[in-house]
Design a protein around this nucleic acid. Sequence first.
DNA 1: GATCATATCGCGAGGCGTCGCAATAGCGAC
DNA 2: GTCGCTATTGCGACGCCTCGCGATATGATC
Lengths: 154, 154
Amino acid sequence: MPHEQIEASAGPAAASPWDDVAVRLRAGGLRWTPQRRTLIEVLREHEGHVTASELIARCKELDGTTTPSTVYRALDLLEELGLVKHGHGHDGREEYHILPQQVHGHLYCVGCGSTWEIRPETAAVIVDALASQLGFAVDLSHVTISGLCAGCHD
Amino acid sequence: MPHEQIEASAGPAAASPWDDVAVRLRAGGLRWTPQRRTLIEVLREHEGHVTASELIARCKELDGTTTPSTVYRALDLLEELGLVKHGHGHDGREEYHILPQQVHGHLYCVGCGSTWEIRPETAAVIVDALASQLGFAVDLSHVTISGLCAGCHD
DNA sequence: GATCATATCGCGAGGCGTCGCAATAGCGAC
DNA sequence: GTCGCTATTGCGACGCCTCGCGATATGATC
């Protein structure tokens, strides 16, 4: 086997936040295991939101020996590193936001079942209202707010 | 522990919304069963919010034969009658609001674990913002929004 | 390459919530 | 009071999520 190729720092490929997970883990005395490697592979495939069960299922496809508890624990770890962020769907089930970039909220229409996003500008109105009136700094992205969309409302 | 008391028909006691549940059920072709009677007893004991497990545990104390599925199904029914309303705590677990009167939201501080209410006036700001910007009629009471309270924030 | 401390894994159990099914029992009709 | 329709119950099984425990394997050190 030839030596593994070292990524040249001049490489033009966009640096992915997943690339240095191994390093970051080891820096904290944590370990880079096959199970975590698999999970990162799976996360690379996704964008936006994924449910925990979807992640577990996909990991199991790739590995077969993956167990749910391992995935949940690895996700907790990645959340501490800021690479994912968990929230709850309208029914309380867990959802993971991959590479959370901007604050946005989630809406679920109980009429038609579709989901909507609260864009950052609108979210800001809500966050500001609660901050000024209650001094509470809310994290709108953690839950899915239910309601009726324009189409189902009238 | 409150002792049992037979309700005198001549009693001028304020009519409780629970009093005519039996009638309302039968009016819809539904039935008034011992299990439902027990649940109503339990609900009479509470105000505000209760978790599903608390209700189930208390029903089991009173009856012993109560099973969770029966309680959940009865709660669904009462929700259709408008007597309770379910929501989700910060961790996604179910919570029941007893006799929901006014629209209010729920806040959970991830710092200290305390819970706060969003008063109707403040809730209105949020509801209006989403209504005017997205045409979405949200139900703020369905979920618990996480964040940091004034004390934990700074 | 061998050693060792310990982070991590897989397993099993448990609580929560949902659903389908066969048996039971309200309750309206007679 | 009895009958019969069918709403409801209890059970069992499942999926989701968490946790504790003993066994394993990472990776730092020599």
